[in-house]
Each structure stands twice: as C-alpha cells, then as structure tokens.
C-alpha cells in the first residue's frame, strides 16, 4: 500500500517534533549536564530533518534507480499487480487477528481463539474449503501441545480443559 512521500515525510517530522518536545520535558539528573533527555532530543531533531527532506522528495532519484534495477529482473505482471491493488486492505487482517487474540485469549482460552484465527486467515487466502476445519483444529491443538507440554509456556487455558 503506497503512501505519498509528502504524507509520510510530514508524519515523520511531526513525530520527530513530538519526540524532541517530549524529550526536553524529561527531568534532568541533579548535578549532571546530560541526562535522559539528550538522546531523544537528538533523535527527534534528526527525524524532523529527514521528515522534511522526504516530504520535499529529496533522495527520490536513488529509489528510482533501485526500482529500475529491480524491474530488470522481473517481468511485468499486470494481473498480479491488479490482484495486489484489489486486496490491499486484506493485508491488515493478520494484525487485526492478533489484536483479537490479545483481547480474547485469556477469557476464551488459547485453542478456540487460535483455531478461529487460523480458519479466518485460511479462508481469506482461499484455502481448500474441506481442509480449513481440520487444519485449524489440529493446528491449534498441535501448537498448544508443543508450547504447553514441551516448552512449558503458560498459554491461557480458558474454560475448556485440555487432555494434557
């Protein structure tokens, strides 16, 4: 998903400004000139500068050169590009499912949440319908078995007790 350099540059510059300002407000260490504020202020100032440079399209020629080199190694595939454009919002499904895991796994338990996550993503990736159910159930059970039994990671059990 392409974001214009103007937007990303301005965003970075504002982030830099926020870091600089936030850093400058940190309490100093008594009796010392440099404290916790020095580093964030330096980084923030740097971000402001590069943000403005990016918004002004400086350095764009290097990117074009690299893209041209890469294009030489790839044959154009308009069908794949159209697919990519059509599906660009689908890319945010995995992080959304991760947030759902964060919110639900303690209450519902690892296995049901993981199984539903696998099923949803497999469906979005056009997996064979008859395979989705077995893979999501056995996948979730398998990961639970490995992490809880072998690696002793306390995954949230939820109301459903596991046989192991």
């Amino acid at each position: 998903m392409r974001i214009s350099d103007r937007i990303s540059g301005v965003f970075l510059a504002l982030l830099g400004l926020a870091a600089f300002w936030g850093g400058s407000r940190l309490p100093p260490v008594p009796g010392q000139q440099v404290g916790p504020s020095a580093f964030p202020m330096v980084v923030g100032a740097g971000l402001m500068i590069v943000g403005i440079l990016i918004a002004l399209h400086i350095g764009r020629s290097f990117e074009e050169q690299a893209e041209a080199e890469l294009a030489k190694h790839r044959q154009p595939d308009p069908e794949a590009e159209a697919f990519q454009r059509r599906r660009r919002w689908f890319a945010f499904l995995p992080p959304a499912l991760m947030v759902a895991y964060y919110l639900l796994s303690e209450r519902v338990g690892f296995v049901p949440v993981a199984a539903v996550m696998i099923a949803i993503l497999a469906f979005a990736l056009n997996a064979k319908r008859q395979l989705i159910l077995p893979v999501s159930i056995f996948g979730a059970l398998g990961i639970h078995l490995v992490f809880v039994k072998l690696l002793r990671v306390p995954l949230p059990p939820g109301p459903l007790p596991m046989p192991w």
Binding site: F110, A114, M117, V135, I143, P154
Partner: peptide, 29 residues
C-alpha cells in the same frame, strides 16, 4: 499450500512473542 501455512505461522508469531517476552500478552500487540 501457502494458504494453510501462513495462518499457522501467524499463530506462531503470537505465541512465540508471548513466550519470548516473559509470558506477557502485551507482546502480541
């Protein structure tokens, strides 16, 4: 099939980060 491997990897990401961060659910975010 990639369509079945990627979902399992996604769950590995959640569980792996959770355990690497000292069993902190915050790592998933």
């Amino acid at each position: 099939p990639r369509s079945l491997i990627m979902p399992v990897i996604m769950v590995f990401c959640a569980v792996g980060a959770f355990s690497a961060a000292g069993n902190n659910l915050y790592a998933v975010l």
